[in-house]
Lab assay of single mutants.
Amino acid sequence: MTVLPKDIPGDSLKVTVGTANGKPGDTVTVPVTFADVAKMKNVGTCNFYLGYDASLLEVVSVDAGPIVKNAAVNFSSSASNGTISFLFLDNTITDELITADGVFANIKFKLKSVTAKTTTPVTFKDGGAFGDGTMSKIASVTKTNGSVTIDP
């Protein structure tokens, strides 16, 4: 049996954390987006972790974005102690894959008090994996961190 590389060099799934701005007490939304989904033969499963400074940001909610089908079954998240974990699994293993680019999740943060303008990162942590529509590992994932700026 011969195994051929399935990824064209330079191609990767792009996962990007967005940015937001606000004043202390505001609730802002930071999107997590996927790009080049079709090039990577869709997404059938993924789990990953984001870190944030809990002294500056309070997670209000984490909701599935419009590219997630049947989110009540296929999407899960949790947030505590400065870490947000995400889990997606197409429970049907074929019919509810992520097949389009767009917003995977929206994180709502309540901004805490600061004395001066502060930009705090929302960054990928170690761990996690992504699988394509056949549940094979997506070897190349380009992750881009985001941030939230609090301006009193």
Rank of each mutant, 00 (worst) to 15 (best):
F48S: 06
V59S: 09
A116D: 06
I84L: 14
F104V: 03
F86Q: 01
D63G: 09
L50C: 09
A38F: 07
D132C: 04
K41T: 12
G102N: 01
I98F: 04
T27C: 13
V73E: 14
G44A: 03
D90Q: 00
G51D: 14
T99S: 06
P31K: 12
I93R: 02
T99W: 05
G133S: 03
D26P: 10
T94G: 03
V122T: 07
K6T: 10
F130I: 04
I107N: 04
V59P: 09
K110C: 04
I67M: 09
D101V: 06
I84V: 07
T99R: 06
D151H: 15
P5N: 08
S55L: 08
T33E: 10
V43P: 01
T118D: 06
F86L: 05
Y52D: 04
A79V: 15
T92E: 00
T33D: 12
T83P: 07
D26A: 12
A35D: 06
N91V: 05
F34S: 05
I8S: 11
T33Y: 12
K117N: 06
F124R: 04
L111K: 04
T83D: 07
M40C: 14
L111C: 06
V37D: 11
E58I: 14
S113L: 07
P121Y: 05
G44E: 04
E58N: 08
G131K: 02
T144R: 07
K39V: 09
N47T: 01
D151A: 15
N42T: 11
L87K: 02
C46K: 00
T92F: 00
N81Y: 15
N145Q: 04
D101K: 06
D132E: 04
T2I: 11
K14C: 15
S136P: 01
G82E: 15
V60D: 12
F75Y: 05
V59D: 07
G131M: 01
D11Y: 12
G22T: 09
S140F: 05
G44S: 03
C46H: 08
K110L: 02
A100Y: 06
K41N: 10
F88N: 00
G127D: 04
L87G: 00
T45S: 03
V30N: 09
S12H: 13
L4Q: 11
N74E: 00
V141T: 07
T29Y: 11
G146L: 04
T123N: 08
P9T: 13
L97Y: 00
N21P: 14
E96F: 02
I67Y: 12
